[in-house]
Design a protein around this nucleic acid. Sequence first.
DNA 1: ATGTGACTTGAAGTCCGTT
DNA 2: AAACGGACTTCAAGTCACA
Lengths: 71, 71
Amino acid sequence: MRKHPILVGLGKRIRELRIERGWSQENFANECGLDRSYYGGVERGERNVAAINLAKVAEVLGVRVGDLFPD
Amino acid sequence: MRKHPILVGLGKRIRELRIERGWSQENFANECGLDRSYYGGVERGERNVAAINLAKVAEVLGVRVGDLFPD
DNA sequence: ATGTGACTTGAAGTCCGTT
DNA sequence: AAACGGACTTCAAGTCACA
């Protein structure tokens, strides 16, 4: 599987924000309209997630898409 | 899914930044390691570009990935 | 130099399950 | 609650010819 550093950083950041908000992966994934299995892979940095799904995640988290990427 | 507003906004922003730097689509795409035709589609909002390609574009533009998304 | 349509291939994304 | 797998279907990635 792929573990591109960009994706790992992205996954870690999203996970942080989700946990801050007290969501489970499963509930959060459902809220975003994503499959729980797929979403788990995103947090683990194994999925090269595309822009529209990034936008969905950012919206549910209540942040801008840019905030999903670590500096 | 094609011409999604998120993608159109993203493409416009990327185009702005590219033109500011005086690149042609073709030269810029090559610099990013992308095909010019594919890249053109990104600027037109016709491609749901994924995180790794966003990272390539941001790097060549010298901005953070978050800066590619309009507020 | 860019827009566009058509195309193939590999990965994105879904749906079920078990650990 | 989360990781992980199999078996799918859909779409992003990447390329080309032509306008």
